[in-house]
Amino acid sequence: MPDDLILETRDVAKEFLGFVAVAGVSLKVKRGSIHGLIGPNGAGKTTMFNLLTRFLPVTRGTILHRGEDVTRLRPAQVARRGVVRSFQISAVFPSLTTLENVRIALQRPLGTSFRFWSPASSLSVLDDRARALLGDVDLQDLADVPAGELPYGRKRALELATTLALEPEVLLLDEPTAGMGHEDVGRVAELIRRVARGRTVLMVEHNLSVVADLCDTITVLARGSVLAEGTYATVSADPAVREAYMGSAA
């Protein structure tokens, strides 16, 4: 059932001057699922994200979105198809206000983004939607604060609100809880569960309890290859996975 797969890679590989970061990975992401990508450091998880969003060109292999070949598209084109990524380090626009951050995402479909002669007030038609999106992540009271002044957890929330403003079909989240305190981890996990309704999420995550809690399917990468795939129970019982994580077949 090919239309059941929203994102698929076939034998995708990436080499950097002879160093093999991803060595032929075939990934199948089902529509509507929360798919986790885990593995030790250097397993090629972030490289996979960069390949899927075309931030890096593949060395070989094919990437399919809704069954169509997107291997040669430009990154902005992939984003406009609805495959939108987040970043490991929080990606906000620090000199813009929280509201303006979300508005940047809403602004593009308006089709006026090249108009250097229009006043900025022409963007205020988007303010209500931007505020609603901020409300979804509990940032409505900080709408006029420059994003650079937000605490870390709030920046991640803002990043999520900005990503959601694009109404993405597929969300690629790169370590959404990295560097967070315990409180924030729970909040963000809950937020991901909420926004995943009606969407597909592919996430790289180190926090295994978050992965166990959220993900329907988990793919374990090690040294650029798929080590195991399945539900959390399946992969966590796999001796090869345990060895890759612990360094011994404990």
Binding site: T53, F55, P75, A76, A79, R80, V84, R85, S86, F87, A91, V92, F93, P94, S95, L96, I104, A105, R108, S113, T162, L166
Partner: peptide, 11 residues
Amino acid sequence: DNEPRALSLGY
């Protein structure tokens, strides 16, 4: 402010 992010938003 953040070029990769602008790119990822489809610009």
